[in-house]
Design a protein around this nucleic acid. Structure first.
Lengths: 202, 202
DNA sequence: GTCTATACGAAGATAGAC
DNA sequence: GTCTATCTTCGTATAGAC
């Protein structure tokens, strides 16, 4: 299926360009140039720009899903899995300093435009949020698991925002270490989850 | 001076629109409508869009400067002054949930476009950063003052980003309380600043 | 200082040939 | 499925009258 391949090429090119230049700032022509298509042919695959955005968000959702599953396999303990998440700040340092967090910057852009796809973009956050929440639940944090997940997400967003502004690698390392320190100190509230006592010391 | 007034009206209108819609997404026509000017007359006051951006950033810089000075007078202790900063997350909650942080979102947008004014926009952050650093220095945190300032800035950015995404007031309150808690727990590293012993217990 | 009119280019989108 | 040609709208910017 050649059609599927071209379509996929468009989505991948759009994914990169939306991240590096922003959704609004990226034109059909920009994407067409990267894929090596004529502008006209573009509309065979996608009728509107919003349709491409929809496909790009779907693409990112599945990529994140795959990443989370890889972390699930690659790290043995919930703590190590959460650390995998935090480490993307180091792994993607260069890109984050140049373009910010792909999820956060997209959500901000769509929020300002009050775009229909905004809630769909927030789903990208929700994927991380629910996965982190699961890890904290496994650690024995019953009702607080979601709040802790949001706290980690919040910190990663803050680090990404200031990393883009100041481009300070030492700042990123320091804050990543601080999140890991915070993580190590967290202990489940036993009154929430009496059956999880055995987990907390694992 | 009527000219100065019109110019000022343009800058104020642009300030609001750049925040609520974004810099790129705001057209001359949008600003002209708000001010009640014709598009043509616009170019009497500003030759290019970048010139307006320059003026808007200058306007924001002076607004922030005035705000910092007001906090300096309105709050008696450095701790209370830092709390004034944190409280803007509550005070501007509605706008932040709708449009994000005015400084963070502008820096992100300009970073993606690799815009000339990006470093000037970062100055908006630097104003807060240096002021916060001063407060921490007054609290006796010698060499760590700037790191603590960056940590507070980082948290406020993270909260703003997720507030825009999830529009969760309880989350904002919780994280604001958590920053205040963190702030109350900070104690100066005495080896850095031996002469500040008397301050740490004030 | 403010207006109308207009040039110019970029970008979204369509029609129809191959 | 891909192309060229074209339409339309919009946004930046300019010229010149009042």
């Amino acid at each position: 299926m050649v059609a599927a391949t071209t379509r996929q090429q468009i989505v991948q090119a759009a994914d990169t360009l939306f991240y590096e230049r922003g959704f609004e700032a990226t034109s059909f022509a920009d994407i067409a140039v990267v894929v090596g298509l004529s502008r006209g042919n573009f509309y065979y695959h996608f009728k509107t720009k919003d349709e491409i955005l929809h496909a790009v968000i779907a693409y990112r959702l599945s990529n994140i899903q795959a990443m989370l599953e890889a972390w699930e396999v690659g790290a043995k303990t919930p703590i190590d899995r959460i650390r995998s998440f935090i480490q993307i700040l180091i792994l993607n340092q260069a890109k984050i300093m140049a373009y910010g967090c792909p999820v956060g910057t997209l959500c901000n852009e769509l929020a300002k435009r009050d775009h229909i796809a905004k809630n769909r973009a927030v789903e990208l956050f929700t994927l991380f949020r629910d996965w982190l929440s699961c890890q904290f639940t496994a650690l024995g944090h019953g009702t607080q698991a979601d709040e802790l997940a949001m706290h980690i997400l919040m910190r990663s967003q803050g680090v990404a925002a200031l990393a883009t502004a100041f481009r300070d690698e030492a700042f990123i390392r320091r804050e990543v270490d601080d999140i890991c320190l915070w993580l190590a100190v967290q202990r489940p509230n036993l009154s929430d989850n009496p059956e999880s006592v055995s987990i907390q010391n694992s």
